[in-house]
Design a binder for these strands. Structure first.
Length: 402
DNA sequence: GAGACGTGGGT
DNA sequence: TACCCAAGTCT
């Protein structure tokens, strides 16, 4: 222990991880100020109609890394389709995934159903009320445990999300990097001191409403905050330093050939993705990962559509044909042009897809793999498509459907 | 603890 | 264009 650390310890026994905690009187005034603001300004959201733990649970899972405006229509449809925990537990996976299509982070909905089955089997169909039990449910981590405990059951549990860390780091001038998972415990400890024991659910939600309306990541105006008198970084003029947040890694580029192949009946070849990993169990046109050669010639990956060298074009087409024959047992007539390039950015990957279009004759589309189907466009809505697939289909419609 | 895991919106 | 962001969790 350094001298300065021992001085800090000696200076204030109420420190939390070196951060001086307010007096009880100040904490009381803060609670009252924040909750009064929340009573006036709280948003009218569909999952705030009552304290039903199922409704709160579903909303919290949907809201993970996802905006309120995006969630609302999905939420209304989801509660309509699966009105009870039992209905959710019994749903067929494709129906379930369809209800989540376009929301992203699809393991959320698989975990949601798994947890519903846990509740049916282990908790007699009712969400447990003990935070320790709640956190045993699949897909429910420390944040969601706190959210359900406080909002549905009135327990004084912290629900520390990005909003709470941002607001707290400005209130207390906290230098801990909020992008580091290990630092969450600092903010939880502070929230345990601050949280209102009588209205813990409102208190937690007030932090989130404050974080999404006034205490925003950008265009932050601390002078507009209802709790500005408690805001140490505002009082000290240091608010632009907070929160401290390290940068994310850049998405890694990956290159594909996408093959939109139509047979003589007008159906298109779709392939179901593996049951684990990225976009699990969703449907796409055949995709061939590119590791090509073209890089060596100096032409960058991702600019496949701009190849004007005939030799290189021929090389790519040859490879596409070979892969389609090997993996899908088809020998389509590929169209020379037009073809498109589709880009899609995930959190950790950036896909570049050069899309080729091809046609088959009647006798050639029998022997495709088990995880593939020929599907008419009028039936596409029965298949769960991820973003890149939708973009590939749009590229086709733009070029051929008029 | 770092990386995997989606998507759409804003600057 | 290329970032950053939005109510995280799992491995």
């Amino acid at each position: 222990m350094t001298l300065s650390e021992s001085n800090l310890d000696a200076a204030n026994k109420n420190d939390i991880y070196g951060i001086p905690m307010w007096s009880q009187e100040k904490i009381d005034r803060f609670r009252e100020t924040l909750l009064s603001w929340y009573d006036l300004e709280k948003r009218d959201l569909p999952w705030r109609k009552n304290n039903d733990p199922y409704r709160i649970w579903v909303s919290e899972i949907m809201l993970q890394q996802t905006r309120v405006d995006t969630v609302i229509p999905y939420y209304l449809n989801f509660m309509n389709t699966f009105p009870t925990i039992e209905a959710l537990a019994q749903a067929h996976e494709d129906i379930l995934l369809k209800a989540w299509e376009g929301l992203g982070y699809y393991s959320r909905v698989r975990n949601l159903q798994f947890a519903a089955q846990q509740i049916m089997n282990d908790y007699n169909g009712e969400m447990p009320t003990d935070p320790k039990e709640i956190s045993k449910l699949k897909g429910i981590g420390p944040y969601t445990t706190g959210a359900i405990s406080s909002m549905a059951f009135g327990l004084p549990e912290p629900a520390v999300d990005g909003n709470v860390m941002r607001v707290l780091s400005r209130l207390f001038e906290i230098d801990a990097d909020i992008a580091k998972p290990g630092n969450r415990k600092i903010f939880e400890a502070i929230m345990r001191e601050l949280i209102d024991p009588y209205k813990p659910g409102d208190f937690n939600q007030a932090f989130m409403d404050l974080g999404s309306s006034i205490c925003t990541p950008k265009n932050y105006h601390p002078e507009l905050s209802p709790v500005k008198e408690f805001n140490q970084s505002y009082q000290n003029g240091t608010w632009e330093k907070y929160p401290v947040k390290s940068k994310k890694k850049k998405a890694k580029p990956v290159y594909y050939i996408g093959a939109i192949i139509k047979n003589s009946s007008g159906a298109f070849l779709l392939e179901k993705r593996p049951e684990n990993g990225l976009l699990a169990n969703m449907w796409t046109f055949p995709m061939i990962e590119e590791e090509i050669v073209i890089q060596e010639t100096g032409i960058a990956h991702g600019t496949l559509t701009q190849i004007d060298d005939e030799e290189q074009t021929e090389q790519v087409v040859k490879k596409v044909m070979a892969e389609l024959e090997k993996n899908y047992k088809i020998k389509p007539t590929l169209m020379e042009a037009p073809f498109a390039e589709v880009q899609h950015i995930f959190s950790h990957l950036k896909w570049f897809i050069a899309v080729y279009y091809g046609q088959l004759r009647a006798e050639e589309f029998i022997d495709i793999p088990e995880n593939c189907y020929w599907v008419m466009p009028s039936d596409f809505d029965q298949y769960v498509f991820p973003g890149p697939q939708t973009k590939m289909w749009q590229s086709y419609l733009t070029k051929f459907d008029h």
